[in-house]
Write a protein that binds this DNA or RNA. Structure first.
Lengths: 257, 257
DNA sequence: CGCGATTTTGAGAGCCGTCAAGATACGTGG
DNA sequence: CCACGTATCTTGACGGCTCTCAAAATCGCG
């Protein structure tokens, strides 16, 4: 399992640059609209922004964090490691995704989060979370909503790794990523810039790097997709969906915390 | 994938038999103590009990449910199916575990829940969930806590299926089940009655039934565990933990909704 | 241009799946 | 109490999917 631990370039925190009322994500149809009161609280809730470069460790397994975060721009991934270095990527973090709930709720992170590109995160201090729960039940419900959504994605992922074949898994993952990226307008038609290496794909799907590469080639040979130079092109959406047995329906609007 | 769909014997709902103030689970050290106010609300929140026999489908993928539930006694499991019949067991449901949040939050279940033994469930109507969030923020936080705990278990499970070998997976699963059962006093020393068949183990770990059987035998030959006639005996806890690279530390007290 | 990271391809081994068949356990009805 | 059918467990044989090892090609960056 060839995997290099990147040095954790330290991230920098700064004061709020983007006030929540001008949030570039919020107008997207993927997110439910907030009431003025909710928006006002979000402005208070957000204490600043955190920027990190590619490779930065945003949250570390075992650590206690004073904050939770929402990805404002960039990509990241959640992962766990086995003592011998085997790495399992649990899920990816896209703009609008909330991370660090575990640290705030269970006191200690059980997984790590790393930046896949340069990232900007909205910072929410943990102690204000109590105010959210006591004064803004609709937002408290939203946080539960997001936790349930994450659980749903993990369920899907588990089904994939447990019972899909290699080619079905890769087909599933590309559709999953395409759908999520499309939700936040990161696609260009049927194309999509993906900052993942094949090693990331392998570690996500529980496959070796070599077999991942060969599986991608088979998908290309079957004219289902092309994934070259960090660009994914969906060539045959229906074919992929049929192969992966995965429905790529548009998702319901979700809250943006 | 030999798997039989059991006929869904219909479950029966009945009025509250066990008032929450006399809940047999609540005194266990695994659960955090509630304030009198919280307990009083729980009494109001609980609308009754549901009993189901072995094999009953408690929640069905795709369905909308008016209720969520807490397992009061018995075992169940959450699962998803692929159209061709492959089944992935996502997690097990033990006494004290909350199920059906997805139906209440995302409107539609994305997985099913089936009873593994005769079960009794506490029933909580979905519409009272709003009252909980608006009037009892500490309980709202608890529900989020439980969702985060479930996510944590799924993360672990994903790591297991993605990167552990067959023998490590089975070692991991037995430790996982032993730990959770011990939390609710279902063990007898190092022994434990488990209502799972080897097919359930196979569907949980993404392995074939045959290979599951042979792996169990290898663990027995290595004097690590014995799992015969629905009874698991942990013969060498340290050996299992070392093999699975899994720490079986006692968990923090959790809320009981 | 040179070096590290990433991708690509081939060869061989082995873990694990499928197929098959028999053994054992368990519940039901005679 | 026995007979029988179903579900579950067990074991063996064989094939193939996926792993590891190895090395070359390509890309990206300073």
């Amino acid at each position: 399992m060839e995997f290099l631990v990147r040095q954790s370039v330290h991230a920098r925190e700064r004061k709020t640059q983007v006030p929540c009322v001008q949030c570039p994500l919020r107008p997207l149809p993927a997110f439910r609209s907030f009431t003025p009161e909710e928006l006002q609280f979000m402005c208070y809730f957000k204490s600043g922004e955190l920027t990190g470069r590619y490779g930065t460790t945003i949250l570390l397994e075992g650590a206690r964090s004073e904050n939770c975060y929402t990805m404002l721009s960039g990509w990241g991934f959640r992962y766990k490691m086995l003592p011998d270095g085997r790495r399992q990527i649990l899920n990816f973090v896209l703009p609008g995704d909330f991370v660090g709930l575990q640290a705030s709720v269970l006191n200690e992170m059980q997984h790590s989060v790393e930046a896949l590109t340069d990232v900007v995160l909205c910072v929410f201090p943990r102690d204000k979370l109590w105010t959210l729960y006591s004064d803004h039940p609709s937002l408290a419900f939203d946080i539960t909503w997001l936790a349930a959504r994450e659980e749903m994605m993990l369920d899907d992922h588990l089904l994939s790794i447990g019972h899909r074949t290699a080619i079905e898994r890769v087909a599933y993952l590309t559709l999953h990523l395409f759908r999520r990226a499309r939700d936040v307008n990161l696609n260009e038609g049927e194309s999509l810039r993906l900052p993942l290496t094949q090693q990331h794909v392998a570690d996500t799907l529980g496959m070796s790097l070599v077999h991942t590469n060969k599986t991608l080639r088979r998908l290309y040979d079957r004219a289902l997709l092309s994934w070259r130079e960090k660009t994914l092109k969906i060539l045959d959406l229906d074919g992929l969906a049929k192969l992966a047995r995965y429905d790529i329906a548009a998702s319901n609007p979700r809250p943006l915390i």
